[in-house]
Design a protein around this nucleic acid. Structure first.
Length: 801
RNA sequence: GCUCGGGUGGCGGAAUUGGUAGACGCGCAGGACUUAAAAUCCUGUUCUAGCAAUAGAGUGCGGGUUCGAUUCCCGCCCUGAGCACCA
């Protein structure tokens, strides 16, 4: 009877030993090549770690262990993104200060994270809600302020009526609050913004990034660069001009009207000249009341009111009526659009509604001249100009350049680039965040808090957390009242706090010098350790955290080309019954009972075995017994003192192939097939027997995936040092290829037999051997042979007629 | 509506410069051990027909290219994610 593997005793033993020997303490000045292995840090929620966390952190740690065994000095820190709404909402409900509940949750989560058996170096941890961290978040704000990248402005902003705070554009999803799902409304407020738009071009460039294509594409679309031209038209009977933005100036001979947004500057400046003022006033009022959701829900039904004014199309001399309509957005381009109903679906719909002239100026490749074909809406459209004077017969792309040259020469237009990306709104009317380090003085105006006076400490006493539409800090008199740093006179503090995304946009720099009291980060360490070599986290951050972090990093490094994260991998989502796990749905699966039953190695490997890391999947515990059996069998295989090997040559081949397969699979984050390969090897090893050297290699190969099991096996095999300092096995390239291969024999594309043949066999040999096969022969004699195919190592084929 | 993924046995999944589809695991069936059960081990397991050899069908659906298609092309369906009147 072989000894059975005692997962819990063993795992706890090694976790303790690793902690005592400080195995995972990283020497940042170490000589070995560096590897910064980073996983997105969690919010310290009161809920326990769930299966999703494990799915994320387990494989991320396995990757770190693999890299470590490859000889790198691996830095694998962990921290807590601890500012944010849940703790504050908990405080509103119970009165418990967020400082208290957060610290309690962190303590608990560190314990849970320890149970996974990760390599985190806890001496380098960061907690964003502690003054020794947010002091530097405030410092980051001041750096942006200094560079004129942080400023206050009044603008219509997204407002969540439930959270009673403003939200960044990125935090509005389908018109709803990203946090609580409440429908977002618009408010005109004076708020703090970061001018991320100044970095739009730099953020578009991603040559150096080994990121998923999809993520890069999402960022690209979010930034939304478009190249166009501002065209100015004379307004009839007025002294002014109207400027429109278009990306399709080639179609301008087909322009028949102009539409302006209700909130546009043009409306404000020319309102007195409008003919039907009352109607327009009412229309604008109605438009302002509509939420984005309503606007979308109304679909493409176009409404609008004529201003009674006309713009003159200088190309055709046509009078183009000017309308106010809410399908035009004030913040896009100039807020004014020229209507070309022959070639734009929206313009077409508007023209139909208002019975305006529709002119066709492009013939599609298919010769179609009906307005708005599908092809016409596609940007890469190809077509030829008609009805366009000097542009006629030209390809549209040629015409586009030609007309822009023409307009610029005549001083009627100017080429411009537009972005969909908007300023990053960072003020929050909430308590549990880093206070914005600004003082408002009646005499000096807005004054930044000097760096030496940081942090602006979040008050703990006498705080009413309940949101009332104004920041809770506004009611803490001791916080609000202060002295102006400039004139020393009476002044008040800015009472808004920063978006938590500001705090999380630079934490990877802080990890390296977490205990440094004198500076936010150590540039020497950053030069050595950045960029992060591997960053693992959810894809939902594509246009939020990942974009913000790139922006802030570029600013802090003073280099638009600097990138914080070289390689990025997204873990898949673990669902339960097809739905995202959440407390409100009551479908959160706790890993605890499985870890208690099988141990953490089994649980980690089971999650990996579910499928590719990037896929995620629906949670089910079906099959976890398979991994438990495997661990038991692996242990049995290694602990067997017998070293008799039935087939030495076969073992050598299996082992070398295994090294190759496991290495390649881990490199691709295909942990599932790496586990499968180890299972196959174990099945073989139990039958065939293993010598000690093979056992040791097997233990090394499983070490990243099942660290405790491997460490135990390693010790059992007589090694004194940790397996994680034992390096990674190499394979012999000569031993990973088979001399003979089994290949199929096809007749007319159907498999009719199989032959075993030397992998380098000639066509002649292969055909000869294939022909001997009885079943193959049967089909060959059914007609005349017209072709013989041989792909070495793959297939023999016959074509018979 | 647009953009980008994905659709393979009862289940999770494997295999794509076009070359024997279903590795590995779960489940299921049968057997060994046991007084018995659990655990463990062995055998089988895409579907249909057949004792078997084997034959036919088969990777969401319909076409196409090819000796040969899960893989390439065209047209659909379903599903997940993102964007959404961006001019």
């Amino acid at each position: 009877m072989p000894p059975s593997y005692k997962a819990h005793v063993t795992e706890q033993k090694w976790q303790k030993k690793w902690a005592v020997s400080k195995l995972y303490k990283v020497n940042l000045a170490g000589k070995k090549p560096k590897y910064y292995n980073l996983v997105m840090f969690p919010y310290p929620s009161g809920d326990k770690l769930h299966v999703g966390h494990w799915y994320n952190y387990g494989p991320a740690d396995s990757w770190g262990r693999y890299i470590r065994m490859r000889g790198y000095n691996v830095f694998e820190p962990m921290g807590f993104d601890s500012f944010g709404l849940p703790a504050e909402n908990y405080a509103i409900k119970t009165g418990v200060a967020p400082q208290k509940s957060t610290e309690k949750n962190i303590k608990y989560m560190i314990k849970q994270l320890g149970g996974i058996g990760t390599m985190y170096d806890w001496e380098k941890t960061v907690v964003t809600s502690r003054p020794d961290y947010y002091k530097w978040s405030q410092w980051v704000f001041l750096q942006l302020y200094k560079k004129n990248l942080a400023y206050k402005k009044k603008a219509p902003v997204n407002w969540c009526p439930s959270c009673k705070t403003v939200l960044a554009n990125e935090q509005v999803q389908d018109g709803n609050c990203e946090r609580c799902g409440t429908e977002v409304t618009k408010k005109d407020l004076t708020q703090w913004f970061f001018d991320i738009r100044k970095y739009a071009e730099a953020l578009l460039c991603h040559d150096k990034l080994e990121w998923p294509e999809k993520t890069l594409l999402m960022q690209e679309n979010w930034i939304g660069r478009s190249q166009g031209i501002d065209i100015s038209y004379k307004v009839e009977s007025l002294d002014s001009k109207i400027t429109v933005y278009t990306t399709r100036p080639d179609t301008n001979f087909g322009a028949t009207f102009v539409v302006v947004a209700p909130e546009s500057a043009f409306v404000k400046e020319n309102f007195s000249a409008f003919k039907n003022k009352e109607e327009i006033k009412a229309y604008i009022k109605a438009a302002n009341k509509k939420s984005d959701i309503e606007r979308i829900a109304e679909g493409r039904k176009k409404t609008g009111v004529s201003t009674g004014l006309y713009a003159i199309n200088h190309l055709t001399g046509k009078k183009m009526p000017i309308f106010v309509s809410d399908f035009v957005l004030a913040h896009v381009g100039t807020g004014c659009v020229v209507g070309v109903p022959g070639h734009d679906l929206r313009d077409f719909e508007f023209a139909k509604e208002k019975k305006l002239e529709i002119i066709r100026v492009v013939v599609g490749v298919d010769g179609d001249t009906s307005p708005i074909t599908k092809a016409e809406q596609v940007q890469e459209e190809r077509g030829k100009m008609i009805n366009s004077d000097f542009l006629n017969e030209m390809d549209i792309h040629v015409a586009k350049e030609k007309i822009m040259d023409h307009l610029e020469k005549k001083n009627r237009g100017k080429r411009v680039v537009n972005y969909k990306l908007r300023d990053w709104l960072i003020s929050r009317q909430r308590y549990w965040g880093a206070p914005i380090p600004i003082v408002i003085c009646a005499k000096c105006g807005e004054v930044p808090v000097p760096e030496k006076d940081l942090p602006v400490v979040l008050p703990i006493k006498n705080v009413d957390y309940k949101p009332k539409g104004k920041a809770p800090l506004a009611s803490v008199a001791s916080f609000v009242k202060t002295k102006c740093p400039k004139c020393k006179g009476k002044a008040t503090r800015e009472v808004d706090t920063m978006d938590t995304f500001v705090c999380s946009s630079w934490y990877f720099l802080r990890y390296l010098s977490a205990k440094d009291k004198k500076q936010a980060f150590d540039m020497n360490l950053i030069k050595k350790w950045l960029p992060v070599d591997m960053y693992i986290g959810g894809p939902e951050h594509a246009c939020m955290h990942l974009l913000y972090a790139r922006f802030i990093h570029k600013v802090l490094m003073n280099d638009p080309k600097a990138e914080p994260f070289k390689r990025l991998v997204h873990q898949g989502l673990i669902t339960k019954n097809g739905a995202k796990m959440s407390k409100s749905k009551g479908n959160v699966v706790s890993p605890d009972e499985f870890v208690a039953k099988y141990g953490s190695d089994v649980f980690r490997m089971y999650l990996m075995f579910m499928g590719p890391f990037t896929d995620g999947g629906d949670w089910s515990d079906k099959g976890i017994t398979g991994i438990a059996r495997f661990v038991e069998r692996f242990y049995t295989m290694v602990s067997n003192k017998e070293e008799k090997v039935a087939d030495k040559a076969a073992l050598a081949k299996m082992l070398n192939k295994l090294i190759k397969k496991v290495s390649e699979d881990i490199e691709k984050f295909h942990f599932n097939t790496a586990v499968a390969a180890l299972m196959e090897f174990t099945n073989f090893g139990l039958k065939n027997g293993l010598d000690k050297v093979s056992k040791k290699i097997a233990a090394q190969l499983i070490a990243p995936l099942a660290p405790h099991l491997a460490e135990e096996c390693w010790k059992m095999l007589g090694s004194k040092n940790s397996i994680f300092d034992a390096g990674w096995p190499k394979f012999d390239p000569k031993l990973v290829v088979d001399d003979t291969v089994k290949i199929g024999v096809q007749v007319n594309g159907k498999v009719r037999g199989e032959i075993e043949i030397n992998k380098n066999a000639t066509q002649e040999e292969a055909i000869k051997l294939a022909r001997i096969n009885e079943n193959v022969l049967r089909y060959l004699t059914q007609g005349q042979l017209i072709k013989e195919i041989y792909v070495p190592g793959r297939i023999v084929g016959f074509v018979v007629k």
